[in-house]
């Protein structure tokens, strides 16, 4: 019991501290690749600090949903982060919610965020909510297929079990099913975290923005919670990618040395994946909204191929 509480506290603080850093790393890497200096990897912390200190302006047309949304977004993301293995294969709350709970809890956060967007009554909020729900709805089946592929080869939907079974098999990470599922989930990651080519996290041009349009009216600590929630969600999806497909170095016990290797390899893998995300963001242009379904159809077929491959290869 005490061990669980301690591990919850440790993983929670890791997630809260690491998620802004990952976002900062991605931003800086991207800037460097575009031969800009960039704001530095600590910028997200400064932003959080600044936003948390400020007062906030609540739009006069908003109801309590507007205020509830940031809290729900933040708490669902934080809860989900406790269900996935990060450094050790045993996640603190893995028993209480597997991969389906992860997907649906993130869905709960999105549900409230979209309502928060609609609550203000501005056209922007509605526009952002509508697009966000459309894209996430189309990304969902691809995500599920990719996840089913992993779950079926591990015979479990519990992420700790999945990681354990992945550690036990040599060369598994080379199996086509794993590679295809990884590719499908990577496209989903791009779509769900609102990155180019699906959405542009840096734009405030009304015709192209999705996520930013939805949260246009938020300010101060509410905005900080939403941003933080989004960073945690990004970290969750990235961890899901690296630790279920490439569980190298995940610690299987609580030995200090193993935890240290786990920590180091986790950070290294995160860095690699961030670099991959940056590469994709830099080499692609944002596609039109109605071309996004094409991308997600590709992800869906990749997921289906992955599933067929587990079945035959």
């Amino acid at each position: 019991m005490i061990a669980t509480v301690v591990s919850i506290a440790l993983q929670l603080s890791l997630v809260l501290l690491l998620s802004p850093l990952v976002s900062g790393i991605i931003k800086t890497l991207k800037a460097r690749l575009q031969t800009r200096r960039g704001p530095g990897i600590l910028q997200p912390y400064r932003e959080l600090h600044k936003l948390l200190r400020k007062g906030m302006v609540i739009p006069e047309s908003a109801s309590w949903i507007f205020s509830a949304a940031p809290i729900v977004v933040f708490s669902t993301a934080a809860l989900v982060s406790l269900m996935i293995p990060m450094i050790s294969a045993a996640a603190p709350l893995s028993l209480f919610g597997g991969v389906l709970a992860v997907v649906y809890l993130l869905g709960l956060g999105r549900f409230f965020l979209a309502l928060g967007g609609l609550d203000t009554g501005t056209p922007f909020g509605g526009l952002g909510s509508s697009r966000e729900m459309t894209i996430s709805a189309l990304a969902e089946p691809a995500m599920m297929l990719a996840i089913f592929t992993v779950a079926l080869s591990a015979n479990s939907t519990n992420l700790s079990e999945v990681a354990h079974s992945a550690i036990g098999q040599s060369w598994r990470f080379l199996a086509p099913s794993q590679v295809l599922a990884f590719a499908a989930l990577f496209i989903v990651l791009i779509a769900e975290t609102g990155r180019i080519p699906v959405d542009n996290p840096a734009t405030h041009l009304e015709l192209t923005m999705i996520h930013e349009a939805m949260i246009l009216e938020y300010s101060g600590p509410y905005l900080a919670l939403i941003e933080w929630g989004a960073w945690i969600k990004q970290l969750i999806l990235m961890t899901l990618l690296i630790n279920t497909f490439y569980p190298f170095g995940l610690s299987t016990d609580m030995g200090l040395l193993n935890l240290a290797t786990g920590c180091a390899s986790y950070l290294l893998k995160l860095l690699f994946l961030s670099a991959l995300v940056v590469l994709v963001e830099t080499t692609n242009a944002k596609i039109r909204l109605f071309r996004v379904p094409e991308l997600l159809a590709v992800a869906f077929v990749l997921g289906a191929l992955a599933l067929i491959s587990t079945f035959l290869f």
Binding site: A175, P176, V179, L180, A183, F313
Partner: peptide, 12 residues
């Protein structure tokens, strides 16, 4: 493994 992987990529 490598062959099946490359075959899968060819398909992709």
């Amino acid at each position: 493994r490598m062959i099946t992987l490359m075959a899968a990529l060819v398909l992709v």
